[in-house]
Every structure is written in C-alpha cells, then in structure tokens.
Write a protein that binds this DNA or RNA. Structure first.
Lengths: 218, 218
DNA sequence: TAGAGTAATGGCACTCAGCGCCAAAAAGGA
DNA sequence: TCCTTTTTGGCGCTGAGTGCCATTACTCTA
C-alpha cells in the first residue's frame, strides 16, 4: 500500500485500442478487485529500466514502484522479459486482421509486404515511446534473446496467411520461409530505424525489400 | 572425484578439427592441471539432456556426472545455455575462411549461398549427433531464445564479408540485410531438415533459395 | 629434495527469477 | 451478517549465475 503510481496515463503503444478492454473487471462481479493494471506496471517498469537499466532492475523494485506484491507482478507478466513486449498477442490479432483485409488480387509478396508496412504504422505522437520500447528490446541482450519467442508468433501469423493463400500447410517450406524472410527484413529495418530517428519505418522497410531484390538479381 | 566419465570419445560436431587444439595445457606449464575438457562436459551434458530434458537437467547434475565442481563448470561455459553450442566461435573462424576462399568472380549472392552450403557440410557419420544437437537447440524454447546471440555472431561474419566486397560498412543496410536473410533461409532449411531425416541440408538450402526467388518474382 | 611460483579447482555464500501453496483481503449477494 | 468468489501477497523453495578465497597440484629452481 505504499505510494502507488498514478492510474493510466501510459497507453500501450503496440496496443492502444485494445488496452481499454483489458482489465475490465475493475470492480465488476464478485471477488476482490484487481490491485493494478498492465499499463500501470509498464509505466513504472519503463521508468526504472531507463534509470537503472533492464538487468539492473529487479522485479522486487518494480513491485515496490507499482505498490503491489512481487508475487502479484508474476500474475500479470509471466516473466520480467515479458514486460517490455506488453500484450503482444493482442497486437498479433490486429496483424491477422490487416493481412486478411489485403485484396486477393494483390500478388502474395506485395500483400505480405504491404501488411507489414501497415502493421508498423503509428500516429506521430506514439513514435517516441515506441522507439524507446524497441530500443530496449533490440539493444538489451537478455531481451533480444527472449524476443525470439515473440518473433515466432509473428512469423506464424504470416505463415498461416501464406499457407491459406497458397493452399499449403503453415509448416510447409514456402510459408515458413516467407515468415522468416519477412522477419529478417523487418528486423533490418528496425535496427536502422533506431539509429536514424529521421527516417520513417515504412521507407526503411521499402528500402530493405528493394535491396533484397537487387541482391538476388545478379 | 566421483565416477568420472571416460575421456574423449565425443568429438565436437561443429568443431571437429579445432577440438584437438583446445585445452592443450593438460599438464604443460606451471599450475594445477585442468580437471576436465569441453568435450567431456558436453558428452555428459548431452546424455543427461537426452534422459531428463534440458530444463530438467541442473548444472549440479552435470557437474556430478563429469566429476567436477559446479563452480568449475561455469568456468568452461558461461551458462547452461552455452553448452549445446559448444565452442561455436571456433566454427565461425572456419566460416570466415570459407567465405574468404570464395572466388571474387562469383556474384555476391552466389558466393554467400555457396559458403553457407559449404559451412553446413558434414561427414556422414557426423550427421546423427549434429542432428541431435540441432534438435535440442531448435526445439527447446530456452535454447531457441539464447541462440539469437549466436546467430548474431554468425550474421556478423556474413555482414563483414558482404561489406568488404561491396565497399560498405558492416552495419550498412545491405550487409545487415543479407546477414538476416541468409539466416532466415538457413533456419527454414534446418527446421525442415529435422523433420525429414532423408533430405540433405544442401538440397533444403537450395530449395529455400529457389522458393524465395519464386516468391519475389510475381 | 625442499621450497617457490603458478594456475586451476571447488566450496561457500549471496542475489535474483520464478513458482507452488495458502491464508487473508475485499468485493457482491442473500 | 454470513457466504461465495476472486485477487492478493507473503512464505519458502529451486536453480542459475557470481564474487571471494583457501586449497590443490602441477613445474621450475636452488
């Protein structure tokens, strides 16, 4: 019951709309009400990560900052590594929708590429915090490692789409390959994006795709 | 001093030749002689991993199996996750050599592709244990995650080669992209290889490359 | 052959992530 | 007020990883 952080105020970047629906039983129905929210935890955690670094921040410290028990923290996030990713699974639902909305007439590679572009569009004011989040994820070795699991989910979404359009199974070579390569391009673009605050993610993604074509065609 | 495992007998698959030179001061020079070798540790560890699973095997158990102190184990391998990778850095030296030996006349993408093929060639008798090792690495979530760091080193080798041939810096978009995409293809091929014991790694790598071309050309 | 020097060993104690267990807290409803 | 429901959070454990340091087991030299 220590001094708790302010409620809300930090909208989950990867998840702006979905945030509202999450944690919706703040008092409805029977049972003890929740003591915190994902947003609140992330707000406190990101502040500490910025101050002491990711590895230098203990879960106990985050718990104290949020004003909640350490044990409770582990009910909101499976692990410390999961905090920076927020509720990525919701974001993936969005990605699925984007892919499904791509016109069937569009050649497969264009459909996938455009969907990836679309998926990485953010309103201007959401960019700085998103960059902060991605810097943490892409530059912290511990998180780099853990992120593979998230990337795997992301790839699976693409593989499923490709498989459906091609009449294949998601675990066939072609869908898997497209998932892997799409991720490769996205990661290349993101790493560049962190170093060049000026460039847009979309332009960088386009450039990576162009470079890949150049590379492959003699 | 418990019952220690037999010396040698398990040649590091990713590292057959280099193995001999490692741990060469088994009594030379002053100071206490080493109590074990990387090979010995891996042999014991892989046996336990097979029996109880990776997560079900504690470092204490490995230490006991080797007949060495737990503390000593951490001097041979930075972490439990590093054991399955063996001395991958030596293997990377080999990869560098392979790339450097590629004829300059060869188009860049062919040079890289052939080098990757070459890098993944193993004598027939080395295949079963190599498959076992890769199964462990690619199918154990904990290891999947940790492997990114190794992949990063692998990508760096490619990026350096591409940068040199193109007169660019290794951290430019093009070299980075080639590194990422090459890894993407390799991982796709490896995953397939684990499921299809019959197919050769080379054929699968070729097929992945072919699929990528098909995918990109309308 | 008795040190002297050297380098690896391994025990101890510590931090921290993560998890199972369970009593207590805090709501709503009868 | 009591019962039901659900979350909380404290306690205690396992296991990875690390710093510290005395001990061990060699080689070399006088």
């Amino acid at each position: 019951m220590a001094l708790s952080a302010k409620k809300e105020g930090f909208v989950h970047l990867l998840d702006s709309a979905a945030m509202i629906t999450s944690n919706n039983r703040k008092g409805l129905g029977p049972g003890r009400p929740v003591a915190t929210t994902h947003g609140e935890i992330e707000q406190a955690a990101f502040r500490l990560f910025a101050e002491r670094g990711f590895d230098g921040t203990t879960m106990a410290a985050v718990a104290q900052a949020v004003g909640v028990g350490r044990r409770t923290l582990f009910r909101y996030y499976e692990s410390k590594n999961d905090i920076p990713w927020g509720q990525f699974d919701r974001t993936l639902d969005n990605f699925r929708t984007i892919l499904d909305e791509m016109p069937e007439e569009l050649p497969l590679h264009q459909a996938v590429h455009r969907a990836v572009l679309r998926f990485n569009e953010f309103p201007p004011d959401a960019q700085p915090p998103h960059r902060e989040r991605m810097t943490l994820i892409l530059r912290t070795p511990t998180l780099q490692a853990h992120s593979v699991l998230r990337y795997g989910d992301w790839r699976a979404v693409i593989a499923e789409y490709v498989a459906r359009r091609q009449g294949l199974r998601p675990d066939d070579v072609m869908p898997q390959m497209v998932g892997h390569v799409s991720l490769a391009l996205a990661l290349t673009a993101y790493e560049r994006w962190l170093e060049q605050p000026a460039a847009s993610l979309q332009d960088l993604l386009d450039e990576c795709m162009r470079q890949l074509r150049d590379y492959l065609t003699d």
